[in-house]
Amino acid sequence: MPITPHDLVVEAKSQIKEVTCDEAMSLLGKRVVLDVREYDEFAAGHLPGAINIPRGVLEFKIGMVPEAAPRDASLLIYCRTSGRAALSAVQLHRLGYGDVVSMSGGFDQWSSEQRPTEKPEPINFE
């Protein structure tokens, strides 16, 4: 019997460590913060200091980000609601990253709690 995407997320969440938004807030500045949403989602707002590597290219691009490339890097991952982050955390563990946590509730919950966010600076061509 085929499984659903929801089943994949539930399975992933059983294999990873999740932290609350309160816990994630205390980890800012202590971990590399990875936003695995698409660029347009990231551009609309993101956690302070977050680096954007969309879920679809994470395994290929993480090694290109100096802060996140070392396998002993401490990572905090999030997405919109926590599904993509959970799947990402599992894959990063498979790639040898040992210190990965995922933020439960994702950016939606973070925003609803009116926590600090940032937006990328627009490109100035002048």
Rank of each mutant, 00 (worst) to 15 (best):
P2S: 04
P2T: 03
I3V: 07
T4G: 01
P5G: 00
P5A: 01
P5D: 04
H6C: 00
D7A: 08
D7E: 03
D7M: 02
V9L: 05
V9Y: 02
V10E: 12
V10Y: 01
V10H: 02
E11W: 10
K13Y: 03
K13R: 15
Q15C: 10
Q15D: 04
I16M: 10
K17G: 02
E18P: 00
E18K: 03
V19R: 05
T20K: 02
T20V: 04
C21D: 11
E23R: 03
E23H: 06
E23P: 02
A24H: 04
M25P: 00
L27V: 08
L27E: 13
L28M: 14
G29N: 14
K30T: 13
K30W: 09
K30A: 13
K30V: 06
R31P: 03
R31D: 09
V33Q: 11
L34V: 10
L34I: 15
L34K: 02
D35G: 09
D35S: 07
V36N: 05
R37E: 03
Y39M: 00
E41F: 03
E41N: 09
A44S: 15
A44K: 13
G45C: 11
G45T: 08
L47M: 15
P48M: 14
N52K: 04
N52E: 07
I53F: 05
R55E: 05
R55W: 09
V57L: 06
E59V: 10
E59K: 07
F60P: 00
K61M: 12
G63S: 11
M64V: 01
M64Q: 14
M64T: 15
M64W: 06
V65W: 03
V65M: 02
V65F: 06
E67A: 15
A68P: 05
A69C: 07
A69G: 04
P70C: 10
D72V: 05
D72E: 14
A73L: 09
A73R: 08
L75K: 09
L76Y: 10
L76W: 12
L76E: 13
Y78L: 08
C79Q: 02
C79P: 01
C79M: 01
R80N: 13
T81C: 04
T81R: 13
S82V: 02
S82A: 15
G83T: 04
R84M: 03
R84I: 01
A85T: 01
A86D: 08
A86V: 02
S88F: 05
A89H: 06
V90W: 07
V90I: 08
Q91P: 00
H93V: 01
H93S: 13
L95R: 09
L95N: 03
L95H: 08
G96T: 07
G96I: 10
Y97E: 08
G98S: 14
G98E: 14
D99H: 15
D99A: 12
V101R: 09
S104G: 12
S104N: 09
G106F: 09
G106K: 06
G106M: 09
F107Y: 14
F107E: 01
D108L: 11
Q109K: 13
W110P: 07
S111N: 10
S111H: 06
E113K: 06
E113D: 11
Q114A: 13
Q114M: 06
R115T: 04
P116W: 11
P116L: 13
E118Y: 10
E118K: 13
K119D: 10
E121A: 15
E121M: 15
E121F: 09
P122K: 14
I123G: 09
N124A: 14
E126F: 11
E126T: 12
